[in-house]
């Protein structure tokens, strides 16, 4: 049995929380550069140039990429051959608390959805845990902005709605989002499972690097087809008209009940602050 200490996790996670806030990940940078080449609208090009310059300034000046420094969401894969000395929950929460306080990141979490008092340190976090073979600990982190999260949708479709029903729902979700999620966006899709599993799959899908497709060719083709359809809406960067409304469509699927077809679409903005660490 391999042992990993709480403190080791805390330090590693804190480091990536900070890095994600200031350094745009390589996949998104590349995607923005490609989008600039493909964009036809002058306004759209000007916006994409601003976003590329924004990433340079953020990194150089240690200024957050976006002032909404997000809700900390983790997917944690725990190897069955390892054991954590101390508390995983404490390590993740404390990492976020320290990162947000020490690096002047915005505290955007309220303690109660209706009474709305700010917790003051951007905690708690959202933590999804699964167990995998092996002795490694993999932690995926994303700081999820509110503007794009708010444009996400879940639908309990009927199996008879089929593939066309699914595609229409996804394109319609993107259309309804319009300028609000600060396009260009990344569209995360979860198909199957149950009501909550579909949403979790969609969230997990936005953690995937832009440009990487589903390993199943059936879903990889669907991702490519939907990206074209969504960009053909003409909504463009920031919703001001243009070719590049979305950078990627990432789909994840899971077995489901004979009577259901759950579907979730999670919208992610270009300020996709995601990181993966393996300990």
């Amino acid at each position: 049995m391999r042992t990993i200490k709480e403190e080791e996790i805390l330090n590693a996670v804190k480091k990536v929380c900070i890095e994600a806030a200031f350094d745009l990940s390589k996949d998104v940078k590349e995607a923005l550069n490609n989008a600039l080449q493909a964009e036809e609208s002058e306004v759209g090009k000007s916006i994409l140039r601003e976003l590329i310059e924004n990433a340079e300034i953020a990194s150089r000046e240690r200024l957050a990429l976006c002032q909404d420094t997000g809700f900390a969401v983790f997917f944690v894969e725990i190897g069955e051959q390892m054991h954590i000395e101390g508390s995983l929950n404490k390590a993740l929460t404390e990492a976020v608390r320290q990162a947000y306080q020490e690096e002047f990141l915005r505290k955007s979490i309220v303690a109660d959805p209706l009474r709305r008092k700010n917790t003051g340190d951007n905690t708690p976090c959202i933590i999804h845990i699964s167990f995998v073979p092996g002795d490694k600990l993999t932690i995926m982190f994303s700081a999820k902005g509110g503007g794009s999260e708010n444009m996400s949708r879940v639908g309990m479709l009927k199996p008879a709605d089929g593939i066309d029903g699914v595609k229409n729902f996804i394109v319609e979700t993107a259309r309804l989002a319009g300028p609000n999620p600060c396009p260009p966006i990344i569209v995360g899709v979860g198909i199957g499972g149950t009501f909550e599993k579909a949403a979790q799959l969609a969230k997990r899908a936005i953690f995937r690097d832009v440009g990487k497709h589903n390993q199943d060719p059936f879903y990889a083709d669907m991702e490519k087809e939907l990206l074209v359809k969504i960009n053909n809406l003409g909504i463009g960067p920031q919703g001001l008209g243009g070719r590049m409304f979305a950078l990627a469509v990432n789909i994840d699927a899971f077995p489901c009940h004979i009577a259901s077809l759950p579907l979730a679409v999670n919208i992610q903005c270009h300020s996709s602050r995601h990181r993966v660490i393996t300990i």
Partner: peptide, 11 residues
Amino acid sequence: AATGGAGALIS
């Protein structure tokens, strides 16, 4: 409209 997500540049 200002560019959403260009907070460092605008700063």
